[in-house]
């Protein structure tokens, strides 16, 4: 659970006007930083627990990566939509997926301004 001074994924979603499409019951976790990448190996090597991952990848493998790297959730940029298989697997693993029409650069900027480091 989040400390009072930490942003949760739910607050991030609200302030970004991003929509939760999977594991919406797991949004009340603290966000501990973030990373932006569309290369899965990069995220495996550099992702840290609690981070939010901004990507335009939408296939089910993003759920495996987020699970194994213990990320807080995945934020899909530029209006890309995950398919039903991805959503089902994210629900199963408890990995929240947020989607936003904003591009990754804008999302990262907004998160930074919110104090996510």
């Amino acid at each position: 659970m989040a400390q009072s001074n930490e942003l949760t994924l739910a607050e991030v979603a609200q302030r970004l006007d991003a929509r939760a499409v999977a594991a919406a019951d797991r949004l009340y976790v603290a966000v501990a930083g973030g990373l932006v990448s569309d290369l899965l190996s990069y995220v495996m090597a550099n992702g840290r627990p609690g981070q939010v991952w901004i990507t335009i990848q939408t296939h089910p493998n993003i759920v495996a990566v987020a699970t194994l790297a213990r990320l807080a959730g995945v934020l899909i940029a530029s209006g890309f939509q995950p398919n039903q298989t991805t959503i089902a697997r994210a629900d199963e693993e408890g990995i929240p997926i947020l989607v936003s029409p904003d591009p990754a650069f804008v999302l990262a900027g907004k998160l930074w301004e919110m104090g996510v480091r």
């Binding site: 569309d38 290369l39 899965l40 190996s41 990069y42 495996m44 090597a45 990507t55 990848q57 296939h59 493998n61």
Partner: peptide, 11 residues
């Protein structure tokens, strides 16, 4: 799809 960046074995 974001695989095959040549980072697997180094990782």
């Amino acid at each position: 799809l974001g695989f095959g960046a040549g980072m697997g074995l180094p990782n």
